[in-house]
């Protein structure tokens, strides 16, 4: 026992750190500093990394986890909004694109996003920054809102694997320019479990996505949601896959995939009223071949509401037509939901 006690005393003495007077940040080990940096918000981290080289490398060695990130820009200004949680927000606005891209480059390096929204509505003349940058963006859910198509394609190709959903909300001015084939050729889009296309204006997307799924042997649960401002998608799909048809009603079509254990189910959403048949809402899913019709999720209003929250109330308005919404006021109203802070 005596020797044990002796060892113990020696042990505590050996562990001892030198007496420290006027202790400060520089007295902390890199490990503790890193832990403190982990508790700092983005703005403070940016400030700390400007103090000295050693602090910069410490700050840059840590990831910033953001709940939300929003990057917006037009031909005049750029703004970034980052939100770690409700209490900690960072936002910045620039007049010069190069300054904005310097920060974007840094954010790509250190940031991971739960939800990322991109809205670069004008073609970026200096898009080389996005195209040639080797860094990848890390995000779970990505949304493109009224984003220029070329900007969107460039960013999509820069997404790191692991994206769970991609939502493309097309601008009314742009939707006839989107080439579905070009979107579906992007590997990140091919792999994503949830793809959502809103305001599309052609009838080809359902069959093209289903074709891609069949070719790529998409997993059960993979989902595509669509709101389209043109009639004919349902008929085009039925015609295209007539040789694969398992069942067909006025609301659903079920087709075989190449893998025997899975089918593709397409559901047609309801129209807002008998006079207005657009937008049309669709949900398409890869399902198990074993799934019975009684097991279909029949709550269409719910999935349409989730897809397009603005549609929820609109369905209840008599004589409502979707085109009525498309004016400046609606656009301002929609954005207000995001710009409340």
């Amino acid at each position: 026992m005596a020797s044990e006690l002796q060892n113990l005393t020696e042990m505590t003495e050996k562990f001892s750190i030198d007496p420290v007077y006027e202790t400060n940040w520089c007295d902390l080990s890199e490990k503790i500093k890193s832990k403190c940096i982990g508790k700092m918000e983005f703005n403070e981290r940016l400030s700390l990394r400007c103090t000295a080289k050693a602090e910069r490398s410490l700050v840059d060695s840590q990831k910033n986890e953001f709940n939300e990130g929003r990057f917006e820009g037009d031909d005049e200004k750029f703004s970034f909004f980052l939100n770690r949680n409700d209490d900690h927000k960072y936002s910045k606005r620039w007049m010069y694109i190069n300054e904005a891209f310097e920060l974007l480059k840094y954010i790509k390096k250190v940031g991971t996003f739960e939800n990322l929204e991109i809205s670069f509505s004008h073609p970026l003349t200096d898009r080389k920054h996005l195209m040639t940058e080797t860094g990848l963006l890390t995000a779970k859910h990505v949304k493109f809102y009224h984003c220029n198509n070329d900007n969107m394609f460039a960013i999509l190709r820069k997404m790191k694997d692991g994206v769970e959903s991609i939502k493309i909300h097309l601008d009314r001015k742009d939707y006839d320019q989107l080439d579905c084939d070009e979107v579906l050729a992007i590997p990140q889009v091919q792999k994503v479990p949830n793809l959502h296309l809103q305001n599309y204006d052609q009838t080809d997307s359902l069959r093209k996505v289903a074709k891609m799924w069949i070719k790529k042997k998409a997993k059960i649960g993979t989902t595509f949601q669509l709101s389209v401002n043109e009639e004919g998608s349902f008929g085009e799909f039925t015609q295209h896959f007539s040789n694969r048809l398992v069942s067909c009603t006025d609301k659903t079509i079920r087709i075989r995939a190449n893998k025997l254990d899975r089918h593709i189910l397409l559901e047609h959403g309801p129209f807002s009223d008998q006079f207005c048949v657009i937008p049309q809402y669709f949900r398409m899913m890869v399902i198990s071949a074993e799934m019975k019709e009684s097991e279909y999720d029949d709550n269409r209003e719910e999935w349409i509401g989730n897809m397009d929250p603005a549609s929820d109330d609109d369905f209840r308005l008599p004589g409502f037509c979707y085109d009525d919404l498309y004016d400046e006021d609606y656009d301002d109203y929609y954005r207000a939901g995001y710009d409340s802070d």
């Binding site: 940040w25 520089c26 832990k35 403190c36 700092m40 918000e41 403070e44 400030s47 602090e55």
Partner: peptide, 27 residues
Amino acid sequence: LTYCCKQVAMMVKGKSPEEIREIWMIP
């Protein structure tokens, strides 16, 4: 330690690089 690190982080909340350098005596 987690609480303390959070408290340390709070010390520089809203501070500029120059202010941080001064508060934490960073050369």
